[in-house]
């Protein structure tokens, strides 16, 4: 595998126009992008596929960014979430104890900055993934399974951690 796998980005924002252009730009730059326009939709997407980084708008009707982010992480614990917020909302988000995001960015975001942060979030995810995977691999080995059992276990692990 000589080509780096493309970073899988899940976008969540009720502003459809914004996501249209943001998706196009990210796609052109080599990211793999899925745009969703609500918390519910995002959860549906997370059900179907694996993502490395999510970019979530804080203020959305019905399910807000904080809850969406929490539920996404329940489904995919290693998913790194970048939360977009209008001025002043950062404090409220932090105060409510929701510190699970990888980073909070102020809207309107600077595109280049967003790309940099996405890459940083991805690096973090890869790191976490590697160490978790290594841990579990150790356990599997210690469990003393035969070659077939090992292959199966490793395949399962790969699925869990979204490693192709």
């Amino acid at each position: 595998m000589n080509q780096k796998p493309s970073i899988r980005v899940l976008l969540v924002d009720d502003e459809e126009n914004l996501l249209e252009y943001l998706s196009k730009r990210l796609l052109k730059q080599g990211f793999s992008v899925k745009a969703t326009f609500s918390g519910e939709e995002a959860l549906g997407a997370a059900q179907e596929g694996h993502y490395d980084v999510a970019v979530v708008d804080l203020k959305m009707p019905e399910m807000d960014g904080v809850e969406t982010q929490k539920r996404l992480k329940d489904m995919q614990p290693l998913l790194q979430c970048i939360v977009l917020t209008g001025h002043g909302s950062i404090e409220t988000a932090l105060e409510s104890g929701q510190r699970d995001a990888f980073q909070y960015l102020l809207k309107p975001v600077d595109y280049d900055n967003l790309v940099t942060v996405i890459k940083q979030a991805y690096d973090k995810k890869v790191e976490l993934q590697r160490s978790k995977f290594a841990e579990q691999l150790e356990e599997v080995h210690r469990a003393g399974l035969g070659a077939h059992g090992l292959r199966k276990a490793i395949k399962e692990l790969r699925e869990i951690y979204g490693i192709e």
Binding site: E15, L18, K24, R25
Partner: peptide, 23 residues
């Protein structure tokens, strides 16, 4: 303050759209 908040949204779209135009 509310107005400033609201304006950020269309400004964000303009930013992204123009970036895309550049591409």
């Amino acid at each position: 303050s509310g107005v400033a908040h609201e304006i950020n949204n269309p400004v964000a779209v303009i930013g992204e759209a123009s970036g895309w135009a550049g591409e």
